[in-house]
């Protein structure tokens, strides 16, 4: 029994003879977070400019949070702009009005992202499928209009300007993080933190219930799981990570645009996640990379870049429904091993 169990624990089967390539794949699948950290440390030195790398990991973080809903729990939200936008505005407002402390600002952004998801999630979660998607969209648009009207707090149409570039307070000293490379590593710190946290959650008993709910919600309920509570909690975690990403984005831009709350942002994060491939850690970041890189290249060529990006997206969904990473994983035939 003990032998069986240790085998079951290591469901990733290891072939007897491994080529060097297999060994790499095996290592990556065992330690995805370590691998990704390593990759991201080198990443800013291989992209055209460092700000792009920063954008990619911020949107990747947002997509990672979104994926907790879509990929791991099977909830299609069309309103994640709400949590990202609320995170952005929270950071901006806290830094401008309350306390010029980056840590505190980001903590508030994460918290408010989670709280917003808690409230809106409560109202949406009892519905499934398209009704859920439409409800999340409606509430996100509602927040957009509130931000639009509440000019005193949010700057309305003009956005929230002049978020101060405060140095990062550390015990005993403070660092200026507004140099592009330093800021990149500051963001990376939070990305790695989120990855570690999520990995832990997904491997926990709760993470397994999430997967069961995604696979077959009625059956999970008949096994005695209160699945709407489970989905609600996943939604809150997803909202909190999205809020953190929004806060980092506001810190990066020193500005919050009203469009951060607009439905286009919700569509963009869905696109990024589908492009990269749902239900994995790496997929969202690949999706963000491809999306932002294409946007960067195409928008320099034509103002109609959205048409081309849209076409790429449609082709991708039609021919590679598993996304770029999912397709890659299938090709090397190790879907189950690389899933987490």
């Amino acid at each position: 029994m003990a032998e069986l169990q240790s085998q079951a624990a290591h469901a990733a089967t290891t072939p007897a003879v491994m080529s060097p390539w297999d060994k790499v794949v095996n290592l990556v699948s065992r330690y995805p977070v370590a691998f990704m950290t390593l990759f991201f440390i080198l990443f800013p030195f291989v992209v055209p400019y460092q700000a792009l790398a920063t954008q990619i990991i911020i949107w990747g973080l947002f997509a990672l949070g979104y994926n907790v809903c879509l990929g791991y729990t099977g909830m299609l939200s069309f309103g994640h702009a709400a949590y990202f936008g609320v995170g952005s505005y929270t950071l901006g407002i806290v830094l401008i009005r309350l306390w010029e402390n980056v840590w505190f600002g980001l903590a508030c952004a994460t918290f408010m992202g989670g709280i917003t998801a808690l409230v809106l999630g409560y109202l949406c979660i009892k519905r499934r499928g398209i009704y859920f998607a439409l409800l999340t969209l409606a509430f996100a648009q509602l927040l957009y209009f509130v931000a639009f009207q509440w000019v005193n707090l949010t700057g309305g149409d003009n956005g929230l300007r002049n978020i101060p570039a405060v140095p990062l307070a550390l015990p005993g000293f403070s660092v200026d993080i507004h140099d592009p490379l330093r800021f990149y590593f500051f963001v990376l710190f939070f990305v790695v933190l989120a990855l570690l946290l999520l990995q832990r959650i997904l491997q926990s008993p709760f993470g397994r219930v999430l997967e069961a709910v995604r696979e077959n919600d009625p059956r999970a309920r008949s096994c005695g799981y209160e699945t709407s509570n489970v989905r609600w909690l996943a939604f809150i975690v997803s909202g909190a990570i999205s809020g953190l990403a929004g806060g980092l984005y506001a810190l990066y831009l020193h500005f919050v645009g009203i469009e951060s709350l607009y439905w286009v942002t919700s569509g963009q994060i869905l696109m990024i996640t589908l492009l990269g491939g749902m239900g994995s850690f790496i997929g969202p970041f690949i999706g963000a990379g491809v999306f932002l890189f294409l946007e960067d290249v195409l928008s320099a060529i034509t103002v109609n870049w959205m048409i081309f990006l849209g076409t790429v997206f449609i082709l991708c969904v039609l021919f590679f429904p598993d996304g770029i990473w999912g397709t890659f994983v299938k090709l090397i035939g190790r879907k189950s091993a690389l899933k987490r």
Partner: peptide
């Protein structure tokens, strides 16, 4: 295995985020 394991888990725990399921 996971089909049966997750069903068995329903008798013990749902909101446990920190330990490893296995």
């Amino acid at each position: 295995f996971e089909n049966v394991r997750v069903a068995a888990q329903s008798r013990k725990t749902t909101f446990n985020f920190w330990s490893k399921a296995e």
